[in-house]
Design a protein around this nucleic acid. Structure first.
Lengths: 157, 157
DNA sequence: GCTACCCTACTCGGATATGGAATGTCCGAGTATGCTCGG
DNA sequence: CCGAGCATACTCGGACATTCCATATCCGAGTAGGGTAGC
């Protein structure tokens, strides 16, 4: 899994903390986390294409959540950055056996593929249950000072 | 996820079908599935290191299951090939914030990391539930001719 | 005829190339801000 | 003094390098089996 996922989730939590409608400066955020600014920007672009974020150009521009934080799940972010395809792709190698008797939609009947899909489904469901709003709330409750620190840093200068 | 996983699971199912104690020729298996022989061999080596398979050198050599098929899960194979580390590694970027107040075991308290670990745990549990023996049985029940075809092909020549 | 030895062929094992994706960087397009100049 | 126009700085967006890992391949180490020579 790409590193950008962690960055993106943290960033989205921070965007959930900032007042709605107010963009967050990407470079400032990267500076806060000591991350490569241009690369973080690249990740955000993927999120914009996926409809998770919106972008504002020009001075005082930046990125902001495209939906309410309650309606953005961790899964949305992961899929936006890692791609929609499941991690396990069934090549249906049994279709390559000398006797190619049932090549058609083998993936549906392949028990191995079924197992993998079932596992990935459980994984996605676990990620879909967690929303950005939920993480933001829990984090605020557990580390009350964080929200203020972030907002101060982003507002300063 | 690497392609070798699918090959390995199929191969282990075939090894569960062959009489216990009898090695399976790696090159022959690769030929059956139209796979690159040397690369399949490499995957098997990882499985040997992980204690899933055993190897026999020399003529009539090959690979065989190191344990009974009931005691080999799909998860064992996946972890052997993909590595034990979880897909999501928490870099604890919050430890990089200007005020590094709690760098120690941040991963344990990081809510994002918790979410990811929980999802991966669900994934692993789903894979751990499926044993090679179970897949072999189900496959034999659904595609009764497969077992015979495989054994014939491996025995011929 | 039997046995011990050697030779060969075969298979695993690790070291070695290659390609493509993830990672990281840079410059152009577009826009809001603030200044300037004219009315 | 006020407003329109313009220059400017700032930010996103996509195009361009680089690094690393999955993929693929090859040759050496070790072993079982058979053949051969000697007893």
């Amino acid at each position: 899994m790409g590193r950008g996922v962690e960055w993106a989730v943290h960033s989205c939590v921070n965007m959930a903390w900032t007042p709605p409608g107010e963009p967050v400066n990407s470079a400032r955020l990267a500076e806060f986390y000591k991350l490569p600014a241009a690369y973080l920007n690249k990740q955000f672009q993927s999120l914009v294409r996926a409809g998770v974020l919106e972008s504002v150009s020009g001075p005082h521009g930046g990125f902001l959540l495209a939906r309410r934080p309650e309606n953005i799940s961790v899964l949305d972010i992961v899929l936006a950055l890692e791609g929609q395809d499941p991690a396990f792709r069934c090549e249906a190698i049994l279709g390559n056996v000398p006797d190619p008797v049932r090549q058609d939609n083998f993936a549906r009947t392949c028990l191995i593929s079924q197992t993998m899909r079932q596992a990935e489904l459980a994984w996605r469901q676990a990620l879909a249950r967690q929303s950005i709003a939920g993480i933001a709330d829990s984090m605020e409750r557990r580390f009350p000072s964080d929200k203020g620190k972030v907002l101060d840093y982003l507002a300063a200068e």
